[in-house]
Design a protein around this nucleic acid. Structure first.
Lengths: 122, 122
DNA sequence: ATAATAGTTGCATGATGGCACAAATAAACA
DNA sequence: TGTTTATTTGTGCCATCATGCAACTATTAT
Protein backbone atom coordinates (compact mmCIF):
# COMPACT_ATOMS: atom_id res chain seq x y z
CA UNK A 1 0.00 0.00 0.00
CA UNK A 2 3.01 2.22 -0.30
CA UNK A 3 1.91 5.42 -1.87
CA UNK A 4 4.42 6.76 -4.28
CA UNK A 5 2.88 10.05 -5.12
CA UNK A 6 6.11 11.94 -5.30
CA UNK A 7 6.06 15.41 -3.89
CA UNK A 8 2.54 16.32 -2.94
CA UNK A 9 2.25 19.86 -4.15
CA UNK A 10 0.18 22.54 -2.57
CA UNK A 11 -2.79 21.66 -4.73
CA UNK A 12 -3.05 18.22 -3.24
CA UNK A 13 -3.03 19.65 0.22
CA UNK A 14 -5.76 22.06 -0.70
CA UNK A 15 -3.79 25.10 0.32
CA UNK A 16 -4.06 27.80 -2.25
CA UNK A 17 -5.01 26.38 -5.64
CA UNK A 18 -5.12 29.72 -7.25
CA UNK A 19 -3.45 31.23 -10.24
CA UNK A 20 -4.32 34.57 -11.77
CA UNK A 21 -5.53 35.96 -8.46
CA UNK A 22 -8.91 34.30 -8.67
CA UNK A 23 -9.26 31.50 -6.11
CA UNK A 24 -10.81 28.37 -7.54
CA UNK A 25 -9.11 28.60 -10.89
CA UNK A 26 -6.73 25.64 -11.18
CA UNK A 27 -3.16 26.03 -12.28
CA UNK A 28 -2.32 25.60 -15.97
CA UNK A 29 -0.13 22.59 -15.29
CA UNK A 30 -3.03 20.83 -13.65
CA UNK A 31 -5.33 21.58 -16.55
CA UNK A 32 -2.63 20.65 -19.01
CA UNK A 33 -2.80 17.13 -17.68
CA UNK A 34 -6.22 16.84 -19.34
CA UNK A 35 -5.19 18.38 -22.61
CA UNK A 36 -3.92 15.22 -24.26
CA UNK A 37 -6.44 12.84 -25.80
CA UNK A 38 -4.56 9.71 -24.84
CA UNK A 39 -4.22 10.90 -21.26
CA UNK A 40 -7.89 11.79 -21.11
CA UNK A 41 -8.83 8.38 -22.43
CA UNK A 42 -6.63 6.70 -19.86
CA UNK A 43 -8.35 8.71 -17.18
CA UNK A 44 -11.77 7.86 -18.59
CA UNK A 45 -10.79 4.19 -18.67
CA UNK A 46 -9.88 4.30 -14.99
CA UNK A 47 -13.06 6.17 -14.16
CA UNK A 48 -15.10 3.47 -15.86
CA UNK A 49 -13.08 0.67 -14.31
CA UNK A 50 -14.20 1.83 -10.88
CA UNK A 51 -11.30 -0.03 -9.32
CA UNK A 52 -7.51 0.31 -9.25
CA UNK A 53 -5.76 -1.13 -12.27
CA UNK A 54 -2.14 -1.95 -12.92
CA UNK A 55 -0.14 -0.33 -15.69
CA UNK A 56 0.09 -3.31 -18.02
CA UNK A 57 -3.63 -3.89 -17.70
CA UNK A 58 -4.40 -0.30 -18.57
CA UNK A 59 -1.94 -0.37 -21.45
CA UNK A 60 -3.80 -3.29 -23.04
CA UNK A 61 -6.58 -0.88 -23.98
CA UNK A 62 -4.35 1.48 -25.92
CA UNK A 63 -2.32 1.03 -29.09
CA UNK A 64 0.76 2.63 -27.60
CA UNK A 65 3.80 1.39 -25.77
CA UNK A 66 3.56 0.58 -22.08
CA UNK A 67 6.26 3.12 -21.36
CA UNK A 68 4.11 5.86 -22.81
CA UNK A 69 1.16 4.80 -20.70
CA UNK A 70 3.42 4.77 -17.67
CA UNK A 71 4.51 8.30 -18.40
CA UNK A 72 0.93 9.50 -18.83
CA UNK A 73 -0.04 7.87 -15.56
CA UNK A 74 2.88 9.60 -13.84
CA UNK A 75 1.72 12.97 -15.11
CA UNK A 76 -1.80 12.37 -13.84
CA UNK A 77 -0.42 11.13 -10.53
CA UNK A 78 1.88 14.10 -10.06
CA UNK A 79 -1.11 16.40 -10.44
CA UNK A 80 -3.07 14.52 -7.82
CA UNK A 81 -5.55 13.22 -10.35
CA UNK A 82 -4.60 9.61 -9.81
CA UNK A 83 -3.45 7.66 -6.79
CA UNK A 84 -0.60 5.18 -7.23
CA UNK A 85 -0.19 2.23 -4.90
CA UNK A 86 2.57 -0.29 -5.25
CA UNK A 87 1.80 -3.91 -4.48
CA UNK A 88 4.74 -6.14 -5.16
CA UNK A 89 5.85 -5.68 -8.72
CA UNK A 90 2.66 -4.02 -9.78
CA UNK A 91 1.57 -0.44 -9.39
CA UNK A 92 -2.14 0.12 -9.15
CA UNK A 93 -3.57 3.41 -10.31
CA UNK A 94 -6.95 4.73 -9.27
CA UNK A 95 -8.93 7.92 -9.71
CA UNK A 96 -9.07 10.44 -6.89
CA UNK A 97 -12.74 11.05 -7.49
CA UNK A 98 -13.46 13.45 -4.69
CA UNK A 99 -10.39 15.54 -5.33
CA UNK A 100 -11.18 15.84 -9.00
CA UNK A 101 -14.84 16.64 -8.65
CA UNK A 102 -14.17 19.23 -5.96
CA UNK A 103 -11.59 20.99 -8.11
CA UNK A 104 -13.87 21.23 -11.10
CA UNK A 105 -16.88 22.18 -9.06
CA UNK A 106 -14.78 24.90 -7.48
CA UNK A 107 -13.71 26.03 -10.93
CA UNK A 108 -17.34 26.23 -12.02
CA UNK A 109 -18.25 28.22 -8.93
CA UNK A 110 -15.33 30.58 -9.33
CA UNK A 111 -16.45 31.43 -12.84
CA UNK A 112 -20.11 31.59 -12.00
CA UNK A 113 -19.58 33.83 -8.99
CA UNK A 114 -18.07 36.41 -11.29
CA UNK A 115 -21.01 36.26 -13.71
CA UNK A 116 -22.41 39.81 -13.90
CA UNK A 117 -26.01 38.74 -14.37
CA UNK A 118 -27.16 36.84 -17.43
CA UNK A 119 -24.99 35.72 -20.28
CA UNK A 120 -26.13 37.29 -23.50
CA UNK A 121 -25.14 34.39 -25.70
CA UNK A 122 -26.91 33.66 -28.95
CA UNK B 1 -23.21 43.13 -32.46
CA UNK B 2 -22.20 40.76 -35.18
CA UNK B 3 -21.06 37.57 -33.58
CA UNK B 4 -18.08 36.10 -35.25
CA UNK B 5 -17.82 32.82 -33.48
CA UNK B 6 -16.76 30.86 -36.50
CA UNK B 7 -18.19 27.42 -36.76
CA UNK B 8 -20.17 26.63 -33.64
CA UNK B 9 -19.17 23.10 -32.86
CA UNK B 10 -21.32 20.51 -31.21
CA UNK B 11 -20.12 21.52 -27.80
CA UNK B 12 -21.59 24.99 -28.12
CA UNK B 13 -24.91 23.56 -29.09
CA UNK B 14 -24.87 21.26 -26.11
CA UNK B 15 -25.38 18.17 -28.17
CA UNK B 16 -23.04 15.44 -27.14
CA UNK B 17 -19.97 16.81 -25.37
CA UNK B 18 -18.50 13.44 -24.81
CA UNK B 19 -15.20 11.86 -25.56
CA UNK B 20 -14.04 8.50 -24.29
CA UNK B 21 -17.59 7.20 -24.07
CA UNK B 22 -18.34 8.90 -20.78
CA UNK B 23 -20.81 11.75 -21.20
CA UNK B 24 -19.82 14.86 -19.32
CA UNK B 25 -16.12 14.55 -19.98
CA UNK B 26 -15.10 17.44 -22.23
CA UNK B 27 -13.00 16.95 -25.31
CA UNK B 28 -9.22 17.29 -25.04
CA UNK B 29 -9.17 20.26 -27.37
CA UNK B 30 -11.55 22.11 -25.11
CA UNK B 31 -9.46 21.37 -22.04
CA UNK B 32 -6.29 22.20 -23.94
CA UNK B 33 -7.57 25.76 -24.22
CA UNK B 34 -6.97 26.10 -20.47
CA UNK B 35 -3.53 24.49 -20.47
CA UNK B 36 -1.52 27.59 -21.22
CA UNK B 37 -0.74 30.03 -18.44
CA UNK B 38 -1.05 33.11 -20.61
CA UNK B 39 -4.39 31.96 -21.95
CA UNK B 40 -5.62 31.16 -18.47
CA UNK B 41 -4.58 34.60 -17.26
CA UNK B 42 -6.35 36.24 -20.16
CA UNK B 43 -9.46 34.32 -19.25
CA UNK B 44 -9.09 35.27 -15.60
CA UNK B 45 -8.66 38.88 -16.60
CA UNK B 46 -11.90 38.80 -18.55
CA UNK B 47 -13.67 37.03 -15.72
CA UNK B 48 -12.60 39.76 -13.34
CA UNK B 49 -13.41 42.52 -15.80
CA UNK B 50 -17.05 41.44 -15.72
CA UNK B 51 -17.64 43.23 -19.00
CA UNK B 52 -16.59 42.78 -22.62
CA UNK B 53 -13.17 44.14 -23.47
CA UNK B 54 -11.50 44.80 -26.77
CA UNK B 55 -8.29 43.09 -27.81
CA UNK B 56 -5.93 46.03 -27.44
CA UNK B 57 -7.32 46.74 -23.99
CA UNK B 58 -6.78 43.17 -22.89
CA UNK B 59 -3.30 43.13 -24.38
CA UNK B 60 -2.27 46.07 -22.23
CA UNK B 61 -2.22 43.76 -19.23
CA UNK B 62 0.22 41.30 -20.73
CA UNK B 63 3.86 41.63 -21.76
CA UNK B 64 3.30 39.94 -25.08
CA UNK B 65 2.47 41.11 -28.56
CA UNK B 66 -1.11 41.98 -29.44
CA UNK B 67 -1.06 39.39 -32.17
CA UNK B 68 -0.37 36.69 -29.64
CA UNK B 69 -3.23 37.87 -27.46
CA UNK B 70 -5.47 37.85 -30.49
CA UNK B 71 -4.54 34.28 -31.23
CA UNK B 72 -5.18 33.21 -27.65
CA UNK B 73 -8.56 34.91 -27.71
CA UNK B 74 -9.39 33.12 -30.95
CA UNK B 75 -8.61 29.77 -29.38
CA UNK B 76 -10.83 30.51 -26.41
CA UNK B 77 -13.56 31.76 -28.72
CA UNK B 78 -13.41 28.72 -30.99
CA UNK B 79 -13.96 26.50 -27.97
CA UNK B 80 -17.00 28.48 -26.89
CA UNK B 81 -15.28 29.82 -23.82
CA UNK B 82 -15.44 33.41 -24.98
CA UNK B 83 -17.94 35.35 -27.02
CA UNK B 84 -16.63 37.72 -29.67
CA UNK B 85 -18.67 40.68 -30.83
CA UNK B 86 -17.47 43.09 -33.46
CA UNK B 87 -18.34 46.75 -33.05
CA UNK B 88 -16.78 48.85 -35.73
CA UNK B 89 -13.07 48.30 -35.75
CA UNK B 90 -13.03 46.75 -32.32
CA UNK B 91 -13.79 43.21 -31.30
CA UNK B 92 -15.14 42.78 -27.79
CA UNK B 93 -14.51 39.54 -26.00
CA UNK B 94 -16.51 38.35 -23.02
CA UNK B 95 -16.76 35.22 -20.92
CA UNK B 96 -19.54 32.75 -21.52
CA UNK B 97 -20.05 32.23 -17.81
CA UNK B 98 -23.00 29.89 -17.88
CA UNK B 99 -21.56 27.72 -20.61
CA UNK B 100 -18.27 27.37 -18.78
CA UNK B 101 -19.67 26.66 -15.35
CA UNK B 102 -22.12 24.12 -16.73
CA UNK B 103 -19.36 22.27 -18.54
CA UNK B 104 -17.15 22.01 -15.48
CA UNK B 105 -20.00 21.18 -13.19
CA UNK B 106 -20.96 18.44 -15.60
CA UNK B 107 -17.40 17.23 -15.60
CA UNK B 108 -17.39 17.09 -11.82
CA UNK B 109 -20.66 15.18 -11.81
CA UNK B 110 -19.49 12.74 -14.45
CA UNK B 111 -16.47 11.87 -12.36
CA UNK B 112 -18.34 11.79 -9.10
CA UNK B 113 -21.10 9.61 -10.43
CA UNK B 114 -18.52 6.95 -11.18
CA UNK B 115 -17.05 7.12 -7.69
CA UNK B 116 -17.36 3.60 -6.24
CA UNK B 117 -17.85 4.71 -2.67
CA UNK B 118 -15.24 6.61 -0.74
CA UNK B 119 -11.85 7.68 -1.99
CA UNK B 120 -9.12 6.12 0.09
CA UNK B 121 -6.66 8.95 -0.24
CA UNK B 122 -4.19 9.78 2.45
C1' DA C 1 22.23 -16.52 -8.00
C1' DT C 2 19.69 -16.51 -12.18
C1' DA C 3 15.77 -15.71 -14.65
C1' DA C 4 11.35 -13.67 -15.52
C1' DT C 5 7.94 -10.05 -14.99
C1' DA C 6 6.29 -5.08 -14.01
C1' DG C 7 7.36 -0.60 -14.23
C1' DT C 8 10.19 3.41 -14.96
C1' DT C 9 13.58 6.24 -17.30
C1' DG C 10 17.17 7.77 -21.00
C1' DC C 11 17.36 9.10 -25.57
C1' DA C 12 16.15 10.36 -30.35
C1' DT C 13 12.51 11.95 -33.39
C1' DG C 14 8.57 14.09 -35.26
C1' DA C 15 4.72 17.04 -34.09
C1' DT C 16 2.67 20.71 -31.75
C1' DG C 17 2.56 25.29 -29.64
C1' DG C 18 3.79 29.98 -27.96
C1' DC C 19 6.03 33.85 -29.44
C1' DA C 20 7.72 38.11 -32.21
C1' DC C 21 7.68 40.54 -36.27
C1' DA C 22 5.78 41.83 -40.53
C1' DA C 23 2.17 41.91 -43.78
C1' DA C 24 -2.73 41.77 -44.69
C1' DT C 25 -7.56 42.84 -43.72
C1' DA C 26 -11.21 45.88 -42.03
C1' DA C 27 -13.38 50.01 -40.51
C1' DA C 28 -13.54 54.98 -39.45
C1' DC C 29 -11.98 59.43 -40.88
C1' DA C 30 -9.55 63.40 -43.40
C1' DT D 1 -9.06 59.04 -52.52
C1' DG D 2 -5.52 58.04 -48.90
C1' DT D 3 -4.57 57.52 -43.82
C1' DT D 4 -4.89 55.96 -39.36
C1' DT D 5 -6.36 52.52 -35.98
C1' DA D 6 -7.89 47.66 -34.53
C1' DT D 7 -7.42 43.07 -35.40
C1' DT D 8 -6.11 39.07 -37.79
C1' DT D 9 -2.94 36.14 -40.35
C1' DG D 10 1.64 34.47 -42.56
C1' DT D 11 6.17 33.06 -41.34
C1' DG D 12 10.06 31.54 -38.87
C1' DC D 13 12.26 30.33 -34.44
C1' DC D 14 12.63 27.93 -30.29
C1' DA D 15 10.67 25.18 -26.53
C1' DT D 16 7.73 21.60 -25.13
C1' DC D 17 5.69 17.15 -25.69
C1' DA D 18 3.94 12.52 -27.25
C1' DT D 19 5.86 8.44 -28.94
C1' DG D 20 8.87 4.18 -29.68
C1' DC D 21 12.72 1.62 -28.43
C1' DA D 22 16.22 0.25 -25.42
C1' DA D 23 18.24 0.10 -20.97
C1' DC D 24 17.60 0.13 -16.19
C1' DT D 25 15.41 -0.90 -11.53
C1' DA D 26 12.56 -3.57 -8.55
C1' DT D 27 10.21 -7.58 -7.14
C1' DT D 28 9.03 -12.50 -7.40
C1' DA D 29 10.03 -17.19 -8.63
C1' DT D 30 13.04 -21.14 -9.76
Amino acid sequence: MAQINKHLKKEQKGEDRGCCGIPGIPEPRFLKAFSDSTRLRILAHLVEAKEPQMVSEIAKNFPIDVSVVSRHLAILRDEGILLAEKQGKEVYYSVRYEFLSSIFRGFASAIESCCPSKEKSE
